[in-house]
Design a protein around this nucleic acid. Structure first.
Lengths: 331, 331
DNA sequence: CAAGTATACGCAAACGTTTGTGTTATTGTT
DNA sequence: AACAATAACACAAACGTTTGCGTATACTTG
């Protein structure tokens, strides 16, 4: 049997309540002499508090849940690192739950788990939650925030990059570097993110009076393979001079396939990625990207959940920037 | 206030115990008619069970904890995927805790969290636990297993690849392909893993009567930057014809730096990596690797923890294999 | 039909905390 | 010296479940 607060109380010759208050540092409730004694006894006995019992009694947990898609992209690590960065400072525990890839069953399971555990907050990362899961979460009253998924309509508060701006800026960059025929690879029109980015692309093209051949738009879903497949679609003599890929991995797929076709990047084809994770720096050529600050997204999201006040959480976009590397060139 | 089991009982006109038994599917304790009724009422009321209360009362949680280093290598995802694969099938929840990089404070915090929550098992991934954390874990009596870290001495049960074999096989492969001067990059002699791999390397060299120049051994710690730095150490005219890197990322660092020196891989230098994650397939040239089966390591580890029996967990090595790709050549 | 046995359910204790309130000893005020 | 105020602690209820045990009813069986 584990040693409980009762054992400590007995051994220290004080009441259970005193032990509880000492151990959870409720100031002004005990003499410092007693406190020292209690702490010593607890340590000697190897007391470990039972978080379940504590949470049950106090109705508040100190754990933050991160619900995340088992994403084939790779920025999640940075977001999680950001979350941990601030959670650790606040003394909160973080528990991560995978919700699969557009898998409603797994999503429900994950959401159910966090609700059952009555966590103090939920961070939903790179996931477009199904209606059912979303409803459970809403009615549970647990504070939550979407990270890296600007919410369609009033899904809830989010912290993300502006996907419309991402599409726009990438396109603008390429146009300003002389490109007129620009491909778009890996966007999923069904998803909010994909649609937004595509809108940004269209707007930038329109603004510069450039027309779009719908054949330049190759849908997909963030993966390396999507990039490869898209490049196969374009073929050995692509109709475009530049391609915007929906993730760093997708860009790599495009570049690899281009190389297999004997096409030089960027000499014969410029490729630009969205995300700007470390991959863009270790791959050769290094990849020009619209870079998102995932670490800060994680930090900001976590901080938003931890500000004790009861204000509704403010959604916001964090700045993005185009980082020029070696996979694009001036035409 | 959330709706509790009591509310359900009242609304369904049965006792709390019946509701409990119905909702947790304790067979042979209720009539199926009652069960249907109770379930319906519970659903109508939007009942969500309180996992804390349940765990507290039953003394058993259904959550598995994964304690993981915020590793700069990238195989963790695959291990986690494997863990989830079997955990999901068993209906267990998985919570992931980051323990930093050789950061005793964070380790203690993570271990403390899992003990406080009295989880049903702990999977320690790619982490050499400090003595203190290890002791807490051991005295807590919570079943645990080390993944991808063959334990020095009697740390506890593990499932991993045989690091000695990894070093040996990599070296053997290169020797069989005509290499005599083989560099070793990124091994940390202090760590058990690094030492083992190095031993394997030495043994393979010795077995083929090849002597080692200590200058070929460049220590490090799994990162891309370690690879770059090591290659800078070797310089533009490396004394070795082949290099074994301690991770895929490290290998990429080596190759990138080699390329910057104008050295062609594999024409002028063969590079081989350890791990065999997806990186080895998307990078160009594709990278010959000693491939570990991380997914299976995750699966096996999780399964070991979930076999209800009280047998002590058996440590074991999972097979590795050399996968030939395009970063090495016959000399 | 009596006696035994399932079956279906309820009662209440227990899990290990937190916390509002009650109690006693101590200090301060006039 | 009398009384109020405060400090330091203890008591006990509450949190929402699970589960051993008890009991009433229905079903067997010889």
């Amino acid at each position: 049997m584990r040693v409980t607060i009762k054992d400590v109380a007995q051994a220290a010759n004080v009441s259970v309540s005193t032990v509880s208050r000492v151990l959870s540092n409720k100031e002004n409730f005990f003499a410092s002499k007693t406190a020292d004694h209690v702490r010593k006894v607890a340590a000697d006995l190897g007391y470990q508090r039972n978080a379940y019992a504590a949470d049950l009694a106090s109705h508040q947990s100190d754990v933050l849940a991160v619900v995340i898609s088992a994403t084939k992209s790779n920025f999640a690590d940075e977001i999680i690192a950001g979350i941990h960065d601030v959670a650790t400072k606040h003394g909160n525990s973080v528990m991560i739950l995978y919700a699969g890839e557009n898998n409603p069953t797994l999503q429900d399971k994950a959401i159910k788990t966090v609700i059952e555990r009555d966590v103090m907050g939920v961070l939903i990362v790179a996931l477009e939650l199904g209606d059912e899961s979303l409803n459970s979460l809403k009615t549970s009253g647990i504070p939550h925030i979407f990270l890296s998924t600007a919410a369609k309509e009033n899904l809830g508060p989010f912290i993300a990059s502006d996907d419309h701006a991402i599409g726009y800026e990438a396109t603008k960059y390429l146009i300003e570097h002389g490109h007129r025929k620009i491909g778009l690879v890996g966007m999923d029109e069904q998803s909010f993110v994909g649609a937004q980015r595509m809108n940004g692309y269209r707007e930038a093209m329109a603004k510069h009076s450039l027309s779009i051949d719908e054949d330049w738009l190759v849908p997909g879903y963030f993966t390396f393979e999507d990039g490869e497949a898209a490049m196969q679609h374009f073929g050995k003599q692509p109709a475009v001079t530049a391609i915007i890929a929906n993730s760093d991995l997708t860009a790599i797929g495009v570049i690899d396939q281009a190389r297999d076709y004997g096409l030089e990047v960027p000499a014969q084809l410029s490729v630009m990625s969205i995300d700007g994770t470390k991959l863009t720096r270790i791959f050769r050529p290094t990849i020009t990207s619209v870079t998102q600050d995932f670490f800060q997204i994680g930090r900001a999201g976590c901080a938003a959940l931890l500000t004790g006040d009861n204000e509704p959480i403010q959604s916001k976009f964090l700045p993005i920037k185009v980082v020029e590397r070696n996979s694009t060139r001036q035409l």
